[in-house]
């Protein structure tokens, strides 16, 4: 048997890391390997997965988006407000809140992209600032209060189960397929790779790089909105804090999944694996009964380990 090609090895490395983690936690505690527990992982992974998929497109372009906490908060609050205002149940006109939420996400992303591209502010700073704006906007709308969304039909995303997994996991898988479709079959999806692989060259070839960037941020906004919907469905509450912690979790997941921060490679499937790795670690630590206060540190160590094992860093001389 010949040793597998390095390219091939690197492509599958994140998945191998995931499998190794699952095996490890199952050995430590057999309860880990149960449908109930996998469903639990699925539930906790769904909202960050949506956000991470959104930011994947941005990272493929070689940019970064740090606005997701603001975006998720705004989307969640707008959704909940409209939902309650129109009747508070999906069985009424309140279903309009769903598309409205997506539209808000897209607009938010559009604005984010325009600030970045039109004012020529690096995406790190532009999106960081837009994140503050988003958090502020949601605060302004809620006045710091929580909005409860208790509609049974909407919450069935969490409560209804098929094949052991709640509805939201199935919907999320569907969304992943759509994201994969965008990534591999649409012109804009491929253009993200072109921009990430060589922005100047893409521009010289006649590609409207600015337009691609703005569209990328807009698309990311749509996924953040989906993340917001799932987050609200999960806990039944929309508030400013709904967006909390999405930024670091999603970007960590993307990198752990093998998508490089300098752009041009990786993709949706990598992100799925990355999100699962992070959530399996989190869940595994709980199942193992690791004290809460140790979990952040262990997560940190394992994330470093996962990045070391799962990404191709040799080809790059300098890591920033």
């Amino acid at each position: 048997m010949s040793f597998p090609d390095r390219d091939v090895l690197h492509r599958w490395a994140p998945l191998l890391v995931l499998v190794a983690l699952v095996c490890f936690f199952s050995l430590v505690n057999p309860n880990f390997m149960s449908l109930r527990n996998f469903a639990r992982i699925g539930i906790s992974a769904t909202p960050p997965l949506m956000v991470a998929v959104g930011v994947t497109f941005i990272i493929i372009m070689g940019s970064i988006d740090l606005s997701m906490e603001g975006a998720v908060a705004v989307c969640a609050v707008v959704f909940a407000a409209i939902f309650i205002w129109l009747g508070g149940t999906l069985a009424s006109w309140a279903w309009l809140a769903l598309p409205a939420c997506i539209v808000v996400g897209a607009l938010y992303g559009l604005l984010n992209g325009l600030v970045h591209v039109k004012l020529r502010i690096p995406s790190f700073m532009a999106s960081l600032s837009m994140g503050f704006v988003g958090i502020g906007l949601s605060l302004l709308m809620t006045g710091g209060d929580r909005i409860r969304v208790e509609d049974k039909i909407f919450r069935s995303l969490l409560t209804e189960r098929y094949l052991g997994f709640p509805l939201m996991v199935h919907v999320a898988l569907l969304v992943i397929l759509i994201a994969w479709f965008i990534q591999s079959r649409t012109a804009i999806g491929r253009n993200f790779y072109a921009v990430g692989g060589g922005e100047e060259l893409a521009h010289a070839s006649g590609l409207d790089v600015k337009r691609v960037r703005v569209l990328g941020f807009m698309l990311a906004g749509v996924f953040y909105a989906l993340g917001a919907l799932f987050a609200v469905a999960q806990i039944g509450i929309a508030e400013t804090a709904t967006g909390y912690n999405f930024m670091f979790v999603s970007i960590t997941s993307v990198v752990v999944g093998g998508t490089a921060l300098w752009g041009g490679n990786g993709g949706v499937w990598n992100t799925l694996v990355g999100v699962l790795i992070v959530n399996v670690i989190n869940n595994g630590m709980i199942v193992m009964g690791l004290p809460r206060y140790l979990q952040d540190g262990v997560l940190g160590l394992l994330v470093i380990l996962a990045v070391v094992l799962s990404t191709d860093r040799k080809s790059l001389a300098f890591v920033k």
Binding site: Y193, A194, G196, G197, A202
Partner: peptide
């Protein structure tokens, strides 16, 4: 040519 894209994608880029 953009290395991470296929030949045809490079040819019709933009």
């Amino acid at each position: 040519l953009i290395g991470n894209l296929t030949v045809m994608e490079n040819i019709f880029l933009g």
